[in-house]
Nucleic acid binder design. Structure first.
Length: 308
DNA sequence: GGTGAGTCTCGTGGGGCTAG
DNA sequence: CTAGCCCCACGAGACTCACC
């Protein structure tokens, strides 16, 4: 056991476990420190055998590739020791080992980081994000994460197996005690938009699932999680390119009712922030974009560049 | 010990040049 | 015209030193 671990290091390990795998820039953004300080801490943790680093091709651009950080078995043991309720989880629930699509996972991380930034920019708001990948996420008896949704088939409808969003979150206005529920789907263009074979993973089927989920009011189960009243939810699509955004917009427009579906691109998230009017509602690209916070709270607030 | 500034090193992509 | 090579710019990481 490593005894000289400081509070900072414990927080670093916990955040790496929570996200499973992060780029060093993401660690910097989460902890709001300078790049240099975070790199130093991570180097130290790597020397202690608690984290593992590899290089990434994420967002391929000029220059030296960024490091990817995840926990080692020793690091996972450390987090388990700090959180006895996680004792029964195997090591691969804490590490990046089973992450299937790395770029998708890293873009989801960026969404979470930008989402967290909202409550710093607008202190009246609080945000809580549930990730299906997090080891801290309460698991059901069958080992499925809490945010995994079931859709039992009704007579006369096509059977579905349910679905797992890339994230579920709520934004609450603390003074008004008003909560809005959101489901997140991050799209890297790996799934077909509407396959002729009706692939259960294509975007069309996802939208059908959410429409059924909405009609049945199954989202109300989150009222218990967050102790609030919910009048519906919004489904957010984060597309990795403009072309992909356009094709999903066309599909969404063809599939009413779709007013609860909002779409944007990764570029807009990075350049303007999630609180800005960057969201296309119901796939209508000709209409002016809106903010998911509503017109009164809409604000352009990109993440500041961390100090070197 | 922790942090920031300055500087160097390293890996990668882009663009220009040249031989075939 | 194109493949292959080389050089340069860029960006991330590492190192040193000074300061608190």
């Amino acid at each position: 056991m490593i005894r000289n671990l400081r509070e900072n290091d414990r927080e670093l390990l916990a955040s790496i476990a929570e996200h499973r795998i992060l780029t060093s820039k993401q660690v910097t953004a989460i902890h709001r420190r300078s790049n240099q300080v975070i790199r130093r801490h991570l180097r130290k943790l790597e020397q202690q055998g608690l984290v593992l680093s590899a290089t990434t091709g994420f967002g391929r651009k000029r220059g030296r590739p960024e490091k990817l950080i995840s926990l080692t078995e020793k690091g996972a043991n450390m987090v388990r020791a700090e959180n006895p309720e996680l004792k029964s989880l195997s090591t691969n629930h804490f590490t990046g080992e089973n992450i299937r699509c790395l770029d998708h996972h890293l873009l989801t991380n960026w969404f979470r980081i930008h989402l967290d930034h909202i409550q710093i920019v607008i202190p009246q708001l609080s945000v809580d994000f549930l990730s299906p990948a997090s080891p801290f996420q309460e698991k059901a008896l069958d080992g499925q994460p809490l945010v995994s949704e079931r859709l039992p088939a009704e007579p006369g409808t096509e059977p579905t197996n349910g679905f797992t969003p890339d994230g579920v979150f709520q934004i609450t206005h603390k003074e008004k005690q008003k909560t809005i529920l959101f489901f997140l789907e991050v799209d890297m263009g790996t799934e077909s938009v509407a396959s002729p074979k009706r692939d259960p993973r294509d975007i069309r089927q996802k939208i059908l699932n959410y429409q059924l989920y909405f009609r049945r009011g199954q989202y109300r189960r989150y009222e218990k999680t967050w102790n609030c009243t919910l009048k519906g939810f919004r489904l957010l699509f984060l597309a990795h390119t403009n072309g992909r955004l356009a094709s999903i917009c066309r599909l969404v427009q063809d599939m009413p009712p779709s007013d609860f579906i909002w779409l944007t691109t990764a570029d807009l998230m990075f350049s303007e922030g999630l609180s800005a009017a960057i969201w296309i509602r119901a796939g209508k690209q000709t209409a002016p974009p809106e903010s998911i916070l509503g017109p009164a709270m809409a604000c352009k607030a990109p993440m500041p560049e961390p100090a070197e």
